[in-house]
Amino acid sequence: MEENKTRAHQYWKENLKYLGILLSIWFLVSYGAGILFADALNGFRLGGFKLGFWFAQQGSIYVFVVLIFVYVRLMNKLDKKYGYDE
């Protein structure tokens, strides 16, 4: 029983690590590229739009969707590692 608690604790700790990393990436892209560094990025264009504006409007959404798929893949590997897969 104690071994299951330890494994569950390790599983949750690794899950939180993944969440922290992925949410940090999303924060940097959405807040950093869309707001903080928008003026510097506006010197470049993507699809006819200034890059800072593009990140603020669409780029952060695209990155968030990609991060969801990355999270699913990481969690599938984590489930297999700890024996929580079906």
Rank of each mutant, 00 (worst) to 15 (best):
G20S: 07
G20Y: 13
G20T: 08
I21W: 11
I21G: 02
I21A: 11
I21Y: 11
L22W: 12
L22F: 11
L22P: 04
L22N: 08
L23A: 10
L23S: 13
S24H: 08
S24F: 15
I25H: 07
W26F: 06
F27W: 15
F27Y: 15
F27M: 10
F27E: 05
L28E: 09
L28T: 09
V29P: 03
V29C: 13
S30C: 13
Y31R: 07
Y31Q: 06
Y31K: 05
Y31W: 14
G32Q: 02
G32S: 01
G32K: 03
G32T: 02
A33R: 05
G34E: 01
G34L: 02
G34M: 05
G34R: 00
L36Q: 14
L36P: 02
F37N: 01
F37H: 02
A38M: 12
D39C: 02
A40Q: 14
L41F: 04
N42R: 06
N42C: 07
N42W: 07
N42V: 05
G43M: 03
G43H: 04
F44Y: 15
F44Q: 14
F44E: 12
R45N: 06
R45F: 06
L46V: 15
G47V: 04
G47H: 05
G48V: 05
G48L: 04
G48R: 06
G48Q: 06
K50N: 12
K50Y: 14
L51V: 12
L51R: 10
L51Y: 07
G52Q: 08
G52D: 12
G52K: 08
G52S: 13
G52A: 14
F53M: 07
W54M: 07
F55G: 00
F55A: 00
F55N: 00
F55V: 00
Q57N: 12
Q58K: 06
G59D: 01
G59Y: 01
S60H: 15
S60A: 15
I61M: 12
I61H: 15
Y62L: 09
Y62F: 13
V63A: 03
F64L: 12
V65P: 01
V65R: 07
I68E: 04
I68R: 02
F69W: 12
F69D: 08
V70A: 14
V70Y: 07
V70H: 01
